[in-house]
Write a protein that binds this DNA or RNA. Structure first.
Length: 137
DNA sequence: GCCAACGTTGGC
DNA sequence: GCCAACGTTGGC
């Protein structure tokens, strides 16, 4: 299983809205960046991801899982853009802020820290474990 | 609200 | 195919 990180501005789509969708999950629409799209293409059903609030909060707030593999993005007619569906699994007992991630040497190579603008990122197994540990899971 | 980083577009 | 101009993202 692979691990990922999904960024969203809570003004646009928040963790609470994601949770409200329940087990049905929701399309992760609106990605217009090839790197991010390619990451979604690589996702498999059941892969896990962190849900990150950008701009407001700037923290990892929960865990999601891929509930449908990559398919055309229904928010556009442009065939270049595809997306997966994700559903909320559980909130983190303690949110991990960007500040904390930056201060943690074991996360120095994380895309969240090094490539701030990428909206859908891969997370290594080691990074996943460190964040779970910090979050109290 | 500013601006740095970075991706995309389009002229040549 | 290069690169300048431009637009967008996201931290601060």
């Amino acid at each position: 299983m692979a691990y990922w990180l999904f960024k969203s501005e809570p003004d646009t789509w928040s963790w609470d809205q994601q949770v409200a969708k329940g087990a049905a999950g929701e399309e992760w629409t609106g990605v217009r960046n090839y790197q991010a799209r390619n990451n979604m293409r690589a996702m498999k059903l059941g892969d896990r991801g962190f849900f990150y609030h950008s701009n407001i909060g700037k923290e990892i707030v929960g865990i999601v899982e891929v509930s449908a593999e990559c398919h055309p993005d229904s928010s556009t007619d442009d065939p270049r853009w595809e997306c997966v569906d994700i559903r909320a699994v559980q909130p983190l007992p303690r949110a991990i802020t960007l500040e904390e991630a930056k201060a943690e040497p074991r996360l120095a190579e994380m895309a969240l820290v090094k490539n701030t603008r990428l909206s859908v990122q891969p997370v290594s197994e080691a990074e996943w474990a460190v964040i779970c540990e910090l979050a109290g899971l």
